[in-house]
Design a protein around this nucleic acid. Structure first.
Lengths: 207, 207
DNA sequence: ACATGTGAACTGCTTCACAGCG
DNA sequence: CGCTGTGAAGCAGTTCACATGT
């Protein structure tokens, strides 16, 4: 398949959210123009994004809301359940475990891992907190698909190397560092410090 | 000033982090090539990024680590303190208040706001939690520069409208929605659901 | 008549390659 | 000689505009 730009995938995500909203309100069709307005983009962009995957609309009419939503779920791989583990049971890890958005979209959290013996053996919103030492033993058994890394910056690279060695191919990283991984592993980084500095730059350099 | 791409600003942020690391280890000069390797980019990219703001290097030698770090702090607007308020004292808000990265970089959290009377009047890591009703009264007095929005998706747009009406020009949004704001307001959105769906897409469509 | 699907034009970011200078 | 700084070339993503199908 042709390589799809990151920005395209992000927009597909957004379109799906809007469609689910429309679906909830019982609307049955939608035009590229309405989707565009809602997503802060253009109708041509919406049509181009969708055209990479097929022709889902009816000319002169628009798109069937439930059909397009289904196709997007399929494209994004959201028809199946993904198994997730969280590495680091600190404040951010705890907030993520409680976050409803995960489960809603088919991301099932199996367990959290931490090095702190105070936390190990306890639960976080019904999710067990296990010793990080168990990681290598558990991964082949549980076969998680995605690891969410919420450990301090200085431990992040080491933890990621263990996660990768255990065979996990997708990582969501909350540590403010540039992670080195093999090319068959996908990393997405959420870096709050960087976003804040972007705001600082915008405030400083606005005319 | 010439318009600077978002991707450029993000890289400047990253360079600064690396420089601070080098500074801590007592190194005094660095080449664009080393910065590039560390940041997963190319030396030409590093030089081009910096060239938008001036000529900070010495030909044949490289860049002075402390000098370049200083220039980057200046460019990014990190020489001054920014005042931050957090809207929403839920799990994510609480995690952010505890996050050391904020204070380290000169972002000073003034207060958190919430609608829940159970939380109002309490403290979060020494930060007062105030009633959201006070927002309009407090902003002119405290003059916060940045609002961090961690309220549920369904309340986010309404809250942001109040924040904008109160005169705040920079917003860091954690709600998984597309916010509508006037063009003189900068919004950065951190959308975990979208990043996860990006991973789902990558896992589904890898060859 | 209306809205999609898409090649072509365009815009802007990245990479190249080399002149310039310490 | 080495590394920066920068026009020029290359490339990728966005926008345009219209043929196409209902």
């Amino acid at each position: 398949m042709k390589r799809i730009a990151d920005s395209t995938v992000r927009r597909l995500s957004a379109y799906l959210r809007f469609l689910e909203d429309f679906e909830g309100r019982g609307l049955s069709t939608i035009s590229s123009d309405e989707l565009a307005r809602r997503g802060g983009t253009t109708s041509a962009q919406v049509r181009k994004d969708l055209s990479f995957f097929g022709s889902f609309g009816k000319r002169g009419l628009g798109y069937s809301v439930p059909e397009l939503a289904g196709r997007l779920r399929e494209i994004l791989g959201l028809e199946r359940q993904w198994k997730v583990i969280i590495i680091g049971a600190g404040k951010i890890g705890a907030a993520l475990v409680a976050y409803r958005g995960f489960r809603q979209r088919g991301f099932h959290i199996l367990a959290a891992y931490d090095a702190n013996p105070e936390k190990v053996g306890k639960q976080l919103e019904g999710i067990p907190v296990r010793d990080i030492g168990q990681l290598e033993r558990d991964v082949p058994k549980d076969t998680p698909d995605i690891a969410v890394v919420t450990v301090p910056a200085e431990n992040a690279q080491a933890v990621v190397e263990r996660v990768v060695a255990a065979g996990i191919k997708a990582i969501l990283n909350f540590a403010p560092v540039q992670l080195q991984v093999p090319s068959d592993v996908t990393v997405k980084t959420v870096n709050m410090a960087m976003e804040l500095e972007g705001l600082s730059f915008a405030l400083t350099n606005r005319d």
